[in-house]
Design a binder for these strands. Structure first.
Length: 103
DNA sequence: TCCATGACCGACT
DNA sequence: AAGTCGGCCATGG
């Protein structure tokens, strides 16, 4: 495990229950060069991880795992279970659920 | 060691 | 409104 990944995971673990953060935001807080690395870090997570990766969305407030099989559905279910609401376009109201980082 | 690839973002045309 | 481009980290062959 690299230090860069650890920083990303540390930030994601801080996202409060029922809140969401964008890749760009996580990259910024984790002090990572580009959001790309965040995505790659999350893609390397295992199923039994303690990192709430489902609380991370892209800049539009939608789930980016569209291509990834099954994962998108899992993410949506977990978010809805936490009280996060999706609109008609399967998009999340960032102004209502976005996490702006540690206080 | 070099090359390609991957959950992305923001600015520009 | 939609497509292109640069950014730049880690992994596998």
């Amino acid at each position: 495990m690299s230090a860069t990944f650890e920083r990303v995971y540390a930030v994601v673990r801080q996202i409060p229950h029922g809140r969401v953060a964008t890749y760009g935001r996580v990259a910024e807080l984790a002090d990572v060069a580009t959001p790309r690395v965040v995505g790659f870090a999350l893609s390397a997570l295992e199923d039994d991880t303690d990192v709430p990766w489902h609380r991370v969305l892209n800049a539009k407030g939608t789930i980016s795992l569209g291509r990834r099989d099954g994962a998108a559905t899992t993410q949506r279910e977990r978010l809805e279970a936490e009280g996060v609401v999706f609109d008609a376009n399967s998009r999340i109201d960032l102004s209502a659920h976005a996490w702006s980082g540690p206080a």
